[in-house]
Design a protein around this nucleic acid. Structure first.
Lengths: 186, 186
DNA sequence: TGCGTTATGTTTAGGTCTAAACATCGCAAC
DNA sequence: GTTGCGATGTTTAGACCTAAACATAACGCA
């Protein structure tokens, strides 16, 4: 019965009872249906490619950044500060909000970046207990020469999509993001 | 000049020179253009939503799994074994190939799962130095009651897309994946 | 038989993240 | 004033991953 549409080469020794390898989202869904009929596999062909693409982009970005002498976490930190405009300073809280990691992670990121003289903490000029994290000249220089490398590279990765396809994809991703946020946050 | 299309509330104290917060991919691209005209921002509206969606799905899955008493790494391991069909046994190498993590990570995942009596290692029945990792009855029972919870939940998260939209999205993601693989692997 | 090569697993060092425990600071109610 | 609460940062314990160093085991071949 199993007539799986695989794209992988068949195993050298197809022992009876051994399923074929699955390496596309469709294969994974088919394998569940074969082994466990009725499994709710509707989401697999949407969720799985999104994860795989995220990993592909992340791995490629890591490769590019290694040559630039910076890691993804630091790039994220410096980017947010650079994009915020003069005076290139944000509180820990605000950095956490804009980077999707916890305040504790920001604290550690800032500690590493401060050790490398890319940012410095300044005791709160404005009220409260807030600490302002500011880009140093070295940090500004590093992000300046990293961002074009990273974004330029990623532009080539998505260049295979036509403008129409890209617009459609962006729209659908935005809709899905709204849906998921709506169903998970409240 | 800056007429940023933000969806966030304006900062309480808009000091001069301070950019508005950016919390959509379009806002991020606009912020780069405002602060650094000419930055190649073409990819941002594709790559960023993919990462954010990946994180939304991962966080939600972690929530569901916490109640089921299993973590995402273990779910991944047991799922691959369960989907492979009887006799629910695969080598370390093959597990690494199907889960997108390194062989070292598999070694550790298997060690944890073995400690919890979810799988057991069997000395190579077939040739070589290969170690077969096999699902135990407890592991089989755990994956059986976890997979419906996870996939059922995710089905509701993508239920807002019409069948047509879902097909279009799947197609575009597949095309992008092919492109990116082609440009990064060789 | 002896040796080098290749494939496979495991271990270890280092890095990063989250969750939770702590530590402050400002402020409001009284 | 002072007591308590809420917001903000930092620290720490635990989890998990990668890369690289180590082990073995099977093979090919002289």
């Amino acid at each position: 019965m199993p007539d799986p549409t695989t794209q992988e080469p068949a195993p050298e020794d197809p022992r009876p009872g051994t399923a074929a390898p699955a390496h596309s989202a469709a294969d994974i869904a088919a394998a569940w249906q074969r082994e466990r009929p009725g499994t709710p596999t509707d989401s697999i062909e949407v969720v799985t490619p999104i994860w795989w693409l995220g990993k592909l982009f992340a791995d490629d970005r890591a490769r590019v950044l290694r040559e630039a002498g910076i890691d993804a976490a630091t790039l994220d930190l410096l980017s947010v500060l650079r994009r915020s405009g003069p005076p290139y300073a944000l509180s820990t809280r605000e950095l956490a909000r804009r980077t999707l990691v916890t305040a504790g992670a920001i604290s550690q990121r800032v500690a590493r970046a401060e050790r490398d003289d890319l940012v410095h903490r300044s005791g709160s000029p404005a009220g409260g207990r807030t600490v302002l994290v500011t880009l140093t000249p070295a940090g500004h220089a590093l992000i300046e020469r990293s961002v074009d490398a990273v974004l330029g590279r990623e532009a080539t990765l998505v260049a295979g999509l036509t403008p129409t396809e890209r617009t459609t994809l962006t729209t659908l991703l935005a809709k899905l993001t709204t849906d998921v946020r709506h169903r998970t946050q409240p």
